[in-house]
């Protein structure tokens, strides 16, 4: 069907006069909607990548914070490290040195912070392996053996972040659906306009024995090809604009700086023009059938 649609019937196509206004409207609509679809797709994919990365990275790590009197600090840190070494699901555990802790606090207190003079808790970075450790069991053991230790497995703030990214991805998908619906609506209106403007053409074609399918085909093919061309143009423009967006590098953790297509995700763009053509085909066919039925 797609091939016969592309090949077309030159004689049937000639039956319908070229209509400047509806041609421009369809082309413009398809271009604009494809451009928006590229942005919505980029946003959706970026949000998806971010959600996955946050989920993966944060679910694979945890932090142990040890608050203890200065004279007990080293002993508790050593005890915690030993406990973690024997905990299933823990790949490695490492106490942050004073320089790393200084670096963590610098954004809030400046570089001149006298770390030695303050009762700053010691931090242990825990890297998980496999399906991770049993947080409840670990907390119970820590309570018994390292009383000053508090385990933070990031669940508390990971969940809303991942949920937010997921919602952002859902909004991108919803935007794509709305763009498809708006495209269908605009093309339907343009097709209605073209069919109404060509009422006499339809009347003459019917007089000489043209079937509805013959009459509809010329309109449907014309609108489908216009939508394909417009969406192709919009997709290329959208792709270029996305490629030119300032990015934050591959390690970027922000949605705003991460709106781009990564690797094979560029291939998604190839689906936009054919999908626009399918939407135009369906919308014009339905409009033509209804219109021809009404005019009979």
């Amino acid at each position: 069907m797609a091939l016969s649609l592309l090949a077309g019937d030159v004689q049937a196509d000639r039956s319908v006069p070229p209509t400047g206004f509806t041609a421009r409207l369809t082309l413009f609509t398809a271009t604009a909607m494809a451009l928006l679809a590229v942005f919505a797709l980029a946003l959706s994919l970026a949000a998806g990548r971010l959600a996955t990365r946050w989920s993966d990275e944060l679910s694979q790590s945890a932090t142990l914070r040890i608050s203890a009197p200065a004279e007990q600090m080293d002993a508790q840190v050593a005890a915690a490290l030993e406990l973690l070494r024997t905990t299933p699901g823990v790949a490695s555990a490492r106490a942050l040195d004073s320089e790393e802790e200084q670096a963590l606090l610098t954004p809030w207190f400046g570089p001149e912070l006298p770390l030695d003079a303050l009762a700053i808790p010691r931090l242990i970075e825990v890297v998980e392996e496999g399906r991770g450790f049993d947080a409840t069991g670990l907390r119970a053991r820590l309570q018994a053996e390292v009383p000053g230790a508090v385990l933070d497995d990031h669940t508390r703030w990971r969940a809303p972040l991942v949920a937010a990214a997921g919602r952002l991805r859902g909004m991108g998908a919803l935007a794509l659906l709305l763009i498809g619906a708006a495209t269908a609506t605009m093309i339907t209106l343009a097709a209605h306009s073209a069919l109404s403007a060509n009422a006499q053409v339809i009347r003459v074609l019917r007089l000489v024995g043209a079937r509805d399918a013959y009459i509809a085909r010329a309109f449907v093919r014309r609108f489908t090809l216009r939508a394909l061309a417009g969406a192709g143009l919009g997709t290329v423009l959208g792709g270029l604009l996305v490629a030119l967006l300032p990015g934050g590098g591959d390690d970027s953790g922000s949605v705003l700086t991460g709106i781009r297509f990564a690797g094979a995700q560029w291939l998604w763009l190839l689906t936009i023009p054919p999908l626009a053509a399918v939407v135009a085909f369906g919308a014009t066919r339905l409009a033509a059938r209804r219109m021809l039925e009404r005019q009979s």
Partner: peptide, 10 residues
């Protein structure tokens, strides 16, 4: 049917 009518018109 409209198609049948069209064929008759031929």
């Amino acid at each position: 049917a409209r198609d049948a009518l069209a064929l008759n018109r031929r």
